[in-house]
Each structure stands twice: as C-alpha cells, then as structure tokens.
C-alpha cells in the first residue's frame, strides 16, 4: 500500500515537472509546479515529515507560487510571445549536455540502487518523529542562531524587492 502511494506520488511529481518545463504558457507552468509540489509533500508525509510537508504546501504552493502567478498576471504575459520554436543552444552543446545528464543519472542509480545494506539503516521512527513540537524544539534550541539569521535574510529580501520593483518617474510616464 505504501509502495503504491509512493509510486503514484513519484509519477505525478516527475510528470508534473516535465510538463512544467514543456509548457509555453507560464500560468499552466505554475499550476504544474504546484502539482509537483503536492506530490513531493505526499512523499514528505510518507517519510514521517508531517510538519515540513504541511509547511511545503502552505508556504510553497500557498505563498511562493501565488507570488509567481501574481507576477505573471501583473506582467500580462502570454504564451504566444514564446510561440516561435527556437532553442538557445546549438546542436552539439545540447547533445553533450544530454549525454552528461544521462551519465550522471546512471552513475547515481548505480551508486544508490544497489548499495548493499541500505535496508538495514531503516529504523522504526518514534511516534512523534517530524511532528511540529520536536522540530520546533530543535529549531529554537540547537539551531536558534541560523533561525534568527533567516529573519535577517527575509528582511533584506523584502527591502531589496521593494527597492527594485519600485517604479520611478520615467516608468510612470510610460505607463508600465
């Protein structure tokens, strides 16, 4: 049963990812990325990371991707602008890159798929593994300093975004 859910989630995640990069229309692309993220969240829950899984849906699908959608709507982007088919890379580069990626993946599968005694690493998780309380306890004790640094990072990002996206007089005249 667990394996069936995993396979479903994995197929949906990979399929959503592929569809995402193949779409011409950015709005459809965002929606496919949300599908992928929900599938990843399913895998998180399977790995007992309930809190982080919920966070993934709330923060990523709920906030970050809505920001993407909002910007796409704001810029009034249409798929037609990218309708003409033309890739950025010339043929040899593409072939080299494709071969390199496939080799890399194969090397990874070879390392990972037959590692010998991986299954013995599996331990029964404690009942509250990955719940909100134990994660929060770690976050506010052992990792308090990185956590506080995160707030500074977010502050800098907010200020930076506001400063950069502000429209000045020249833009106002052009009506953008």
């Amino acid at each position: 049963m667990e394996l069936i859910i995993f396979y479903l989630a994995a197929v949906v995640a990979v399929g959503g990812g592929l569809m995402m990069i193949m779409q011409r229309n950015p709005v459809a692309s965002v929606l496919y990325l949300i599908v992928t993220l929900v599938a990843i969240a399913v895998m998180f829950v399977q790995l007992n990371a309930v809190f982080v899984g919920a966070l993934l849906i709330i923060v990523y699908a709920g906030a970050i991707l809505v920001l993407f959608l909002f910007v796409i709507m704001l810029l009034n982007l249409r798929g037609e602008k990218f309708a003409e088919k033309r890739t950025r890379l010339d043929r040899p580069t593409r072939i080299i890159l494709a071969v390199a990626f496939i080799l890399e993946l194969l090397a990874m599968f070879k390392q990972v798929a037959f590692p010998g005694r991986m299954d013995e690493l599996m331990v029964q998780a404690s009942p509250d593994f990955g719940g909100a309380r134990p994660v929060a306890e770690l976050l506010y004790t052992k990792y308090l300093f990185p956590f506080e640094l995160t707030s500074i990072l977010l502050l800098v990002a907010i200020v930076g975004a506001v400063v950069m996206a502000r429209r000045d007089e020249k833009d106002k005249k052009r009506g953008i």
């Binding site: 966070l55 993934l56 923060v59 990523y60 906030a63 970050i64 920001l67 993407f68 910007v71 995160t150 990072l153 977010l154 800098v156 990002a157 907010i158 930076g160 975004a161 506001v162 950069m164 996206a165």
Partner: peptide, 13 residues
Amino acid sequence: MAVAAAEAAVGLA
C-alpha cells in the same frame, strides 16, 4: 524554504 521565499521575492522583482 525561507531562502527560497527570499529568492522568489528578489528574483521576481
């Protein structure tokens, strides 16, 4: 995730 949120804000700007 916090870094990704910051990155999204700055990148979209």
